[in-house]
């Protein structure tokens, strides 16, 4: 039984379908990468899992099962008891994600207090332990620091400490390294993977960066315009993408462009509220689109080569890595 199982999740803001019929599952202890261009609905989908979509957003799903429990039927309080405890999330902007008015120590122990209670002292001990686990030197002193006194990388470590404070079963990391220096990015990524193994958490890693996914994820979901377009074990996806969009994303990787004068880019942008094409949502930008692609929406086709939403998937021998 998967740890998290999402069946037909949709999130709409007014007329905009930010997430559109998403099916997704993740096993215990698994690392799942979610990739896709800006605006493809990665963050919104995961915020929906956290129960953090606020008015005017509307969340619909046939089922969202977590750890064998159906989340859609829970009342708000039951839902909050899971949020931040069994499912935790960290965000892209470490400098603004922590509250500037409270100390690091307070912000860590607050989560512990809400979900686990305990005494002041045990919470403090745990906070110290967490700070050293996330690689913050001199934790005693840092407990009393305010976020503005720490660097972006340090703040992201604090965010991670808050997220793992209650030993969640699932950690969602939404572009955790995008806002950081390149040198720090690798450190934070290693830290996340280390903790994932140590705690046996499942990790959802949202990113634009195909390179990051290649290094870390066991399985990858590719999203486009709110829909899942391809999902497969990471290795196979990188060597043999089947969806033209995945192929185009991989093609845009600098590492793969060394022998080419210019990096190929994908022409056009993700469709918004008013320019959703008929048929396959990717067809206006697709290099291998054919007449029928504009007529009907392709269904998800699943088999032993993962899942793909395309009328004319690329053949395995068509692309060399």
């Amino acid at each position: 039984m998967p740890l998290l199982e999402i069946d037909n999740l949709s999130v709409t803001f007014g007329g905009l379908r930010a997430v559109d019929g998403l099916d997704l599952s993740i096993d215990e202890g698994e690392v799942l990468g979610i990739v896709g261009e800006s605006g493809s609905g990665k963050s919104v989908a995961m915020l929906a899992v956290m129960g953090l979509i606020a008015f005017p957003g509307v969340v619909r799903a046939n089922a969202v099962r977590f750890n064998g429990r159906e989340l859609t039927g829970l009342n708000k309080r039951e839902r909050r008891n899971l949020t931040g405890k069994d499912i935790a999330m960290i965000f892209q902007e470490p400098m603004t994600s922590l509250n500037p008015c409270f100390t690091v120590g307070f912000q860590i122990t607050e989560t512990l207090k809400v979900h686990e209670g305990g005494t002041r002292n045990t919470r403090r001990e745990r906070a110290l332990e967490l700070l050293s686990q996330v690689g913050i030197p001199d934790p005693e002193r840092r407990l009393n620091s305010f976020p503005h006194q720490l660097s972006g990388g340090m703040n992201q470590r604090v965010m991670i400490a808050i997220a793992i404070a209650c030993r969640p079963k699932l950690l969602i990391a939404d572009e955790p390294t995008t806002a950081l220096d390149v040198t720090i990015q690798a450190q934070i990524l290693q830290l996340l993977l280390g903790l994932q193994r140590e705690y046996g958490m499942a990790l959802v890693l949202i990113t634009h960066d195909m390179g990051v996914v290649a290094e870390t994820a066991q399985r990858v979901s590719v999203m486009y315009a709110g829909q899942l377009v391809e999902e497969r074990a990471a290795g196979a996806l990188f060597t043999h993408p089947r969806h033209p969009y995945t192929h185009a994303l991989l093609d845009a990787l600098p590492e793969r462009g060394r022998d080419r004068p210019r990096l190929p880019t994908i022409p056009g942008v993700v469709p918004g509220l008013y320019d959703r094409p008929s048929g396959c949502l990717f067809n206006p930008r697709c290099a291998s689109a054919q007449a029928d692609c504009t007529e009907r929406v392709p269904p998800i086709e699943s088999g032993n080569r993962g899942r793909v939403r395309c009328w004319h998937p690329l053949r395995e021998d068509a692309v060399g890595a």
Partner: peptide
């Protein structure tokens, strides 16, 4: 609309 308010909600606070 600040990020830290989202973080507070993500902690499961009332």
């Amino acid at each position: 609309h600040e990020d830290y308010v989202r973080t507070a909600r993500a902690k499961g606070l009332a």
